[in-house]
């Protein structure tokens, strides 16, 4: 049995005018760390809200641990933890009061499952008497995770837990998720940051309500159909505009200090390309063959759609 199943789920808003989720099917296995990767408006939150029984789909069926998301909503609610994208704890309760409240709601106590949250809770414990509304972004995020975990859920849903969070806190957060996974909890997490995709076991790339690809990050990257080159020169912006006007270039996208390009002719000679670019007045031209990343794959799939 899969931990989470979506079977041809469709969701529209505004009397059918806005198609948020478009015939999405996927499975998340027991104990898996699964990522939904896509930008704002891709449909990630709608999928989360359907799975957490907060939203009814227009079409299709969905289940969590074998329970139907529409009929068995009460069963599901007891078995899942949900951390919404928007901070949803009680701002005028303290850290400890929030945690107590959520434990009680699920007929549990902080002590009963303390082991599960200990590592995370220890980091906010010095502030246990502070009101949640007065916490910093990083601490709010940790408290929200503790509250979603305190009843020891079987499946944890985390909707964009790292959005707007700096690189250091993001790394810490992913370390916490890995640790939770080792304790057997199935985790479904969404993120708009493509670099976080490789931290998941399997991912779904989602755009405009449609799943573009579901697989392990390695396999998705390996499916990139053509050779990918990284190129740089002294004036990177002029290089980018020049590349766009060159007929032999199929695609060119800035990636940090390099520009990633694909060529129309698979057998094209790189030395010739280098000469053509140098002839346009570019200096220190450097071209190399590279392995595509998730963001390369995402862009490629987006442009095919």
């Amino acid at each position: 049995m899969s931990a989470v199943t979506l079977d041809h789920i469709t969701k529209t808003y505004d009397k059918g005018k806005v198609l948020a989720v478009n015939d999405v099917s996927l499975q998340v296995e027991e104990g898996e760390l699964f990522g939904l990767i896509g930008p704002d408006g891709a449909g990630k939150t709608s999928i989360f809200r359907i799975l957490t029984t907060l939203l009814l789909p227009d079409k299709g069926t969905a289940s969590v641990r074998g329970y139907d998301c529409v009929k068995d909503y009460k069963e599901i609610r007891n078995r899942i933890g949900y951390m919404p994208g928007k901070f949803s704890l009680y701002q005028d309760l303290t850290v400890k009061e929030n945690l107590d409240f959520f434990a009680t709601l699920f007929g549990s106590t902080i002590e009963e499952n303390y082991e599960l949250i200990k590592d995370i809770y220890d980091q906010i414990k010095p502030f246990s008497d502070r009101r949640a509304g007065k916490l910093s972004g990083g601490m709010k995020q940790k408290l929200a995770l503790c509250c979603a975990l305190i009843h020891k859920p079987e499946v944890l849903f985390l909707d964009e837990p790292t959005t707007g969070v700096d690189v250091v806190s993001r790394k810490e957060f992913w370390d916490m998720l890995k640790h939770l996974k080792q304790q057997g909890i199935t985790i479904v997490v969404s993120t708009p940051y493509m670099d976080e995709a490789v931290l998941c076991e399997r991912i779904a790339l989602i755009q405009n309500g449609k799943i573009m690809s579901v697989d392990t990050p390695d396999k998705i990257m390996a499916q990139f159909p053509v050779k990918l080159y990284a190129i740089k020169a002294d004036n990177i912006y002029h290089l980018l505009t020049d590349l766009r006007s060159m007929p032999e270039i199929d695609s060119s996208f800035a990636f940090g200090e390099y520009i990633h390009i694909t060529l129309k002719d698979a057998g094209a000679d790189i030395d010739t390309l280098q000469r053509n670019i140098t002839q346009r007045g570019h200096t220190h031209v450097d071209i190399k063959l590279i392995h595509p990343g998730i963001e390369d794959s995402f862009i490629r799939l987006m442009n095919q759609a």
Partner: peptide, 14 residues
């Protein structure tokens, strides 16, 4: 560019 898709993010930088 927070939350924007990777292609639009690059168009924004243009």
């Amino acid at each position: 560019t927070g939350g924007v898709d990777p292609v639009t993010r690059r168009q924004f930088w243009d």
